Simulated scan of single mutants.
Amino acid sequence: MTMHSRTTKVVVTLAGLACLAACGSRVETPADAIAGQLPVAETRSVEAPPPAAGPGGLAGVAEPSASASPTASGQGGEVEIPDAKPTVAKTQKWVKIFSGPSDKDIKPNEDKTQGSNTVELNAVENEQIGTFVTDGAGRTLYRFDNDNTKPPKSTCNGSCATAWPPLLIKSPGKIFPKGIDPKIIGYVERADGHCQVTINGWPVYYFVADAKPGDLNGQGVNDKWFAVAPTGGKTKAIPGFPLTNPTN
């Protein structure tokens, strides 16, 4: 009877871990789960170096720079204040969405079909379509009119997802936005169990025909695919640029 009880507990524990890994590309261990719940200050103290300015300053505590220039009057006026480091603005389960861009260089995954534990989102200006969102490598991100936002749901699967690879985030994840409200950023679990980044509920995608940063070859495809705006909305269509795609 005791042995049966212990077996049941093991099964329940493993089921719990499987549940954690359902939306992501790897199974989390109990140690991962604990690490993901560390206070922000402890996590950041490992990743971010202490401010360069100020002798012997503590990590995360800004001190006036010794080389900061006084005001023109020479009476010890304003000093330059270092930019504030990003803090966690929102948490969705095991994903932390920060208040701004990372203070350290992040190299995005070159393979669009592979997710990453750290994702950058940047708002970029364009004369033709207005402001749209790219990843940290400058690659255009799109939204699909057939998707749902309440609740968020991706309807692009199979051959559609081959042509329009979803922007995936792995566990434990961090998202650093620039020019986008972190409160409207999140993720949704796809039909294949992976986690796809969302902006205001809209799942976002790459387009396989975009070869280099800034390409907009997916803009207006089938009048359903558009570069996503920082609000999650659609950007303007490019005049005389209607395209068709057999997958959707």
Score class of each variant (00 low, 15 high):
F98S: 08
Q128D: 15
Q37N: 12
N222Y: 01
G54C: 08
A161K: 08
R143N: 10
P64N: 11
T13W: 11
G57V: 15
A59T: 15
A59D: 14
K174I: 04
N217V: 01
P151W: 00
T43V: 13
D210H: 00
G100H: 01
A161H: 03
S5Q: 12
S159V: 10
F144T: 04
F226H: 10
T131L: 02
P82C: 09
A191K: 11
F176W: 10
W164M: 12
V40R: 02
E80A: 15
D135Y: 01
P230G: 07
A41I: 10
T29E: 09
D145N: 09
H4N: 13
G193V: 11
A123E: 06
T113Y: 03
V27H: 03
I106S: 08
D105S: 12
G138C: 02
N248H: 04
A161D: 09
C195M: 15
T118S: 12
R6P: 06
L168P: 00
P70V: 01
G77V: 08
T91I: 12
W164Q: 12
K236N: 14
F241K: 11
C156G: 11
P242N: 11
K93C: 09
A227W: 00
V197I: 15
N248C: 12
F132L: 06
A59Q: 14
I81L: 13
K174S: 15
D181E: 07
T13G: 15
Y187K: 13
Q219A: 11
E80S: 11
A229H: 03
I185M: 03
G100Y: 01
Y206L: 11
S154E: 08
V221T: 13
N148H: 08
G76Y: 04
G138I: 01
T231F: 01
S159G: 09
L20I: 06
S25G: 14
V124Q: 13
S99N: 04
S154V: 10
A72Y: 04
A229D: 10
A22Q: 05
I199S: 06
T87L: 10
S116C: 05
A66G: 12
G57I: 12
G158A: 10
T87D: 05
M3E: 15
I97S: 02
A89Q: 02
P213F: 02
V133N: 06
T140W: 00
T140Y: 00
T91Q: 10
A209S: 09
V88Y: 00
G100V: 08
